[in-house]
Design a protein around this nucleic acid. Sequence first.
DNA 1: TCCGCTATGTTTACAGTGCTAACGCGTACC
DNA 2: GGTACGCGTTAGCACTGTAAACATAGCGGA
Lengths: 214, 214
Amino acid sequence: MSTSAKGGYHHGDLRAALLSTAMRMLESGETFSLRAIARNAGVSPTAPYRHFPDRNALESALAVQGFGDLEHDLTDGRDLPTSVADLAEFGVTYVDFAMRRPALFRLMFGNPCDNSDDERVRAANALHELLEQALANVVPESDTTALACAGWSLAHGLAFLHLDGKLPADSPEEVADRVRSAFLAMTDIPKERAPRLKPPAARHPGQRRRGTDR
Amino acid sequence: MSTSAKGGYHHGDLRAALLSTAMRMLESGETFSLRAIARNAGVSPTAPYRHFPDRNALESALAVQGFGDLEHDLTDGRDLPTSVADLAEFGVTYVDFAMRRPALFRLMFGNPCDNSDDERVRAANALHELLEQALANVVPESDTTALACAGWSLAHGLAFLHLDGKLPADSPEEVADRVRSAFLAMTDIPKERAPRLKPPAARHPGQRRRGTDR
DNA sequence: TCCGCTATGTTTACAGTGCTAACGCGTACC
DNA sequence: GGTACGCGTTAGCACTGTAAACATAGCGGA
């Protein structure tokens, strides 16, 4: 076979084989452990330690790959966005990535990040810069740093909330629509609303002070 | 003491004691395992199983508490937001919660959600509704569902990106400022930008087609 | 009053995990 | 052709979640 190798005591390219096995397992939802990866790669339980100092390092390597793939999805064959609508499609792609590869996405983000892994940090930064460029392209005269941050956060939050089932995600189209709506709705808010003379009824309806009423 | 109890073979209220011990450990960053919780509660390793079917159930119980606390932070002693600026403060509070109690926040969200736990689902929904009310209050005539979703996602994304170190979070003020900027910047985007006659230079600068050039 | 039932805690055990240490194969280099 | 080192192996530790069997204590009913 291609990834594993020439079948002797020495494997050939175990590092790559482990990564691809791990990625496959991650995406097929199998339980994810160093030992299981080694098992699936047809190698002894501790062989991975010859190539990765610990589990975290292997995860980081996968995350780096993930960042690359995500960046690829966002850029390949399309121009930088030039309108809010384009931007929304950017968001759709981002969230779609998360939904198609949830475990990988969690691995890339949902972890206390290992900032000691240089390559991983670099990969994450590359993504950040890409997003900033995209935003700068859409709204050149504004505070692009804040905007990039906002755009990224919006997409990121949508991704996680869908992943966690906090927002219904029965079909990809439904999700995509929601992402588009969110992006468009957000830019629709009138900038400075005349502060409506706060009616006293604007108290939180269901408010309860924790432990008192119930 | 208050939480543990009257010291015999039977504990008195082990369930509550376990939850509070677990919460304390979670927030102090100790390693989090059923056995460690039992140990810290001064009880045998499997005692928790008398009160929670499995680890997940205990986590869900903590998450429910977390949702309650977050809702409390968002509502206690303040009116529903009436302006975009108010909304930004809502976001600040949300993100601040995540930063102050990162492990709990991760537990509430960063997990494949256990939707079989009714109470947990209910708690999450309550939060969702609260946010929707808030948004409806600020922009009553709009598509509040989409807006609520967008606002929540924005705050949620900011929270996670800060938690994961993807955005610098050296001081709470810095974070709060970024959250405010993001909320305000987002609502500043001109709604329909005349599609700038795409200059060919708008190609992605650092684009590479993965595997080809390098 | 005493008997036994049940809720709640304990002990024991098992399979799986990350990781270390000591060992051995074989390939590449001198 | 010998040898050193890269890479894979086995053995073993401390830990985890979970199940099964056992023990205790306090309550309700005879």
